[in-house]
């Protein structure tokens, strides 16, 4: 039990240690503005990681989330700029497309019983190709203000905090309550622990899995809006490394890749660890290759801790 707790406390301790280290190294690190910046830098991956956590908790994986996000952001900007739709409708359209893409993943997993790895590998490629075709590989600029408003910030105690970062924290709150307090949330863990026994216990596993993949699609839609808000453009080249970035965040956050164990807020901590190292090492003037090196070491440490706690 103690070891199991450690698996969840571990990421938080690692984050705090990293923060302490960088605070000692650079006087610029521990300022409100800088920490708010890190939060803003992880908001896209952070929101995608919520969906990824849900999928991984059921024992699956979503390799398509980044590309689906790109498809969503292109849909939104295309509808708003080229077709002149009201921005709110364009946003809804983009989220509809990403949720639909998630539904396709879910249907392929539950109805045709294909492994999630293969399904999402396929839809990742499809989403990429459709994004390139629809956008003609061009970036959309001059977007209406409603699409970029989440990139603006509100001043709290003289520190600017992006609305998008607040939206991410809010979504983590939702996901936390959903997983902890609702029957459906407990069923996610049950399905991840043992699909067959969950089904025998009367859980409609197909419907549950389908809704998990659809939620992941919806998260990709929200992330699409955040990515537009952050960069100010609809970029068909976005989202290309986000799938593995989210898996990294989820694993660093202590969620087991085998499903059934983990905390959704852990993924936020995981995303923050990556963001803090990227920021802190730049402040120290260290080459960005070392950030990748550190991330690699931490991922292995995180999975090793998971395995270790599983054995005992």
């Amino acid at each position: 039990m103690i070891v199991r707790r450690l698996a969840f406390a571990g990421p938080l301790v690692a984050l705090l240690l990293a923060c302490t280290f960088f605070a000692l190294q650079s006087p610029r690190f521990l300022t409100g503005a800088n920490l708010s910046l890190v939060l803003q830098q992880v908001m896209v991956v952070g929101v995608l990681a919520i969906g990824q956590t849900l999928v991984i908790l059921t024992g699956g994986i979503d390799l398509a989330c980044g590309m689906i996000m790109a498809l969503g952001s292109i849909t939104m900007s295309l509808l708003a700029v080229k077709h002149g739709w009201h921005p709110a409708v364009a946003i809804a359209g983009g989220m509809g497309v990403t949720t639909l893409a998630g539904m396709v993943n879910g249907l392929l997993v539950t109805r045709i019983k294909l492994p999630p790895f293969i399904v999402t590998l396929g839809t990742m490629n499809i989403a990429f190709a459709v994004t390139q075709l629809v956008s003609r590989a061009q970036t959309f600029t001059d977007l209406p203000p409603l699409l970029t408003c989440l990139g603006h910030s509100v001043r709290v105690a003289n520190t600017p905090i992006a609305y998008g970062a607040l939206a991410m924290l809010l979504l983590y709150g939702f996901a936390f309550v959903l997983l902890r307090e609702t029957a459906a949330g407990r069923h996610v863990y049950a399905v991840g622990n043992n699909l067959e026994s969950a089904r025998l216990a009367g859980i409609n596993t197909n419907r549950l899995l389908l809704s998990v993949y659809m939620l992941s699609g919806l998260c990709a839609g929200v992330a699409a809006l955040l990515s537009i808000a952050r960069t100010g453009v609809g970029d068909p080249q976005s989202g290309q490394t986000e799938n593995l970035d989210t898996v990294t965040a989820v694993v660093l956050g202590g969620t087991s890749l085998f499903g059934g164990r983990g905390l959704v807020v852990g993924s936020l901590v995981g995303a923050l660890i990556v963001g803090v190292f990227r920021n802190g090492l730049t402040l120290m003037g260290v080459s960005s290759v070392y950030q990748i090196l550190v991330t690699g070491v931490l991922v292995i440490l995180a999975v090793a801790t998971d395995q270790w706690s599983r054995k005992s």
């Binding site: 830098q41 970036t139 990515s227 952050r230 960069t231 976005s238 730049t282 402040l283």
Partner: peptide
């Protein structure tokens, strides 16, 4: 990449 360029410049 545009998003990565923005993050990198912010940190710089």
């Amino acid at each position: 990449d545009q998003a990565k360029g923005q993050t990198a410049m912010e940190n710089c």
